[in-house]
């Protein structure tokens, strides 16, 4: 696996502000242990909004996004401490490759298109399979009920029920409604991510 196509934002003093959504601000909230990598994995069906979320986090333009072939990765680094966010394409054909990216994952973010009711069942199945994965056992999971800017979006509570999230016992989990397009709710979700990474590393 290569990282040559990653965008690396280096920030030696790490004092500049890149907006509240920025990856650097997330990195700052994490308990820093030098030479350590925090690894966040973004998964979900195609057209869920994973790449838009990633670009939103990296403060990049989100107006010309195209379907992800393979994966995208964004990294930020500060004083030897590194945060990597992996966004893996969601089309059925490449879901078998998801497992290649499980190792050493600190938090799984599962992105759902809340307006695509026809595929709730499919997305639920994929999530259930992920939660069974040995390499992901105990990994905190944040479900983003994305696309809340659409009128037809189902509320997070309905999605949580549909996915039977309350039956998850082997890890901490959270569902957060958001719109990767407008950024609403993303910060709250990422705060939870930081909190759960920090408490796992205690």
């Amino acid at each position: 696996m290569t990282e040559t196509d990653s965008t690396t934002l280096r920030c030696p003093g790490c004092r500049e502000a890149r907006g509240t959504l920025g990856l650097l601000s997330i990195l700052r909230k994490l308990k820093s242990t030098p030479d350590q990598e925090v690894r966040i994995l973004l998964l979900g069906l195609d057209n869920g909004g994973k790449t838009t979320l990633l670009k939103q986090l990296a403060s990049e333009d989100i107006s010309h996004i195209t379907p992800t072939q393979g994966f995208n990765i964004k990294s930020v680094q500060s004083q030897g401490f590194k945060l990597n966010v992996w966004d893996i394409g969601g089309q059925r054909k490449i879901r078998p490759y998801w497992k290649n990216y499980f190792e050493n994952t600190d938090v799984l973010i599962y992105v759902i298109d809340s307006a695509d009711r026809k595929r709730f069942e499919e997305t639920g199945q994929e999530l259930a399979e992920l939660l069974e994965e040995e390499k992901l056992s105990g990994v905190p999971v944040l479900v983003f009920a994305n696309k809340q800017d659409l009128l037809t979006a189902a509320p997070a509570s309905e999605i949580a029920e549909g996915l039977n999230l309350h039956t998850i016992r082997d890890r901490v989990w959270q569902i957060q409604s958001c719109s990767a397009l407008t950024g609403e709710g993303v910060q709250d979700g990422m705060n939870w991510v930081c909190k759960s990474v920090n408490s796992r590393r205690k």
Binding site: T4, Q69, G70, I94
Partner: peptide
């Protein structure tokens, strides 16, 4: 595999 798409695209 297709997972290397972005590398070759660049």
């Amino acid at each position: 595999s297709i997972m290397e798409f972005n590398l070759y695209r660049e």
